[in-house]
Computed example of a mutant assay.
Amino acid sequence: MFPDGTGPSANPAGDRHERRIRSFQPRRSRVTAAQRDALLRLWPEWGVEIDGDRRLDLDELFDTLPPGSPVVLEIGFGMGEATVRMAADDPATGILAADVHTPGQGNLLGQAEREGLSNVRVANGDAIILLREMLDPGSLAGIRVFFPDPWPKKRHHKRRIIQPEFVELAASRLRPGGLLHCATDWEPYAEQMLQVLTDCPALENTQPDGGFAPRPDFRPLTRFERQGLDKGHVVRDLLFRRLP
């Protein structure tokens, strides 16, 4: 689909680093002309292949920000509308947005360029490989996992990203005080998330009652979320802080 070296790879890590059941499938269909143009032009500068072969220097990656600027990892950004809004509202924070949806990658890059944002980078591939192989412990100010696939059938629960092993890994990449922020509109998954996050000894719930959090102002209300609310869905936010 893309000339060599100018766009995201279909499977950047290959089979070198990961043999677990994956919770995603790369999707490259229905890329519009505008999305393709953004990928061809901007991927070499703003794109990151999650190949698992190197450690990222976040100061170098976000070279448009002052050294030591906070960086937040967003796992799964859809078409990127909320990512762009969060980046625009907080230009001093770098957002490393990871997904495998090629149209969404192109859409996010194009929107970021149109908004004149310099604090967004797009990562292509498996976020677990990114966390484990490419990010240093304590390097992130936050991790966001908004509306991950709930895999509602019981036999598919093992595919859910919020599992004890993932949460332990994610917590290790947060700096002290960093936030792990999850959101879902699937109530059974919300309950599982709350239990798994509560059980992680490296994290503490920001809510004194140990429950769900109100939606913080910095998380935009997306079109997808608004549609769910119109259908009577209950959206749950979970905000857990990395302990010293």
Rank of each mutant, 00 (worst) to 15 (best):
A213L: 04
L117N: 12
L56G: 03
L131M: 09
W43D: 02
R28T: 01
L42A: 10
T198K: 03
P148N: 05
W46Q: 14
P12M: 09
N107S: 15
P70G: 04
N107Y: 04
P26K: 06
I162E: 11
L58K: 07
V48L: 12
T93R: 14
D185H: 11
A88F: 00
M79L: 14
R30C: 03
D89L: 06
D199W: 13
R19P: 07
R155C: 02
T32G: 07
V234Q: 13
P3V: 08
P152V: 04
L203D: 08
D126F: 09
E168K: 04
P70I: 07
F77G: 03
I129E: 01
L229E: 13
P201T: 09
R41Q: 08
D230L: 11
D136Y: 00
G210D: 00
E45Q: 13
L239M: 14
P244W: 12
L73I: 02
P176L: 07
L73C: 04
A127Y: 00
P137H: 06
N107M: 00
R20D: 13
T64S: 15
H157I: 02
T222P: 11
R19C: 08
P66R: 12
M86Q: 14
K231P: 02
L130R: 00
D99Q: 10
R22I: 14
A171R: 01
G104Y: 07
V120K: 08
R30G: 03
E187R: 06
L229P: 00
A141K: 11
T64N: 07
D237I: 13
S9C: 08
C200F: 07
E168Q: 09
M134N: 02
G178C: 06
F24S: 01
V235A: 13
H156Y: 09
S172Y: 12
I21D: 15
A141E: 08
C200W: 05
R175P: 10
A112M: 04
A141G: 14
T83N: 07
D99L: 04
E113C: 03
L203V: 10
R241K: 14
L39K: 10
R19A: 11
E45G: 08
P66G: 05
D63F: 08
R175W: 13
E74C: 03
A33C: 13
A213C: 14
P70W: 00
V48A: 08
G78W: 14
G104C: 03
D209S: 11
E81I: 01
S118D: 15
G138E: 06
T64V: 08
R144T: 08
L243H: 12
A97P: 06
V120F: 13
L179S: 05
A33H: 11
E191R: 15
F224G: 07
I129S: 00
D37L: 12
L131K: 02
F240Q: 07
L197Y: 05
A112K: 06
G178Y: 07
A33W: 00
P91F: 03
G232P: 11
R132F: 02
F212S: 04
R19Q: 15
R54S: 13
L169C: 06
G7L: 09
V71I: 14
A202T: 01
F146I: 11
F77A: 10
A33T: 11
F218I: 15
L169Y: 06
P70T: 13
E49C: 11
L169T: 14
P12G: 05
A98W: 00
R173Q: 13
E133K: 15
R132E: 15
Q207P: 00
T184R: 12
R215F: 09
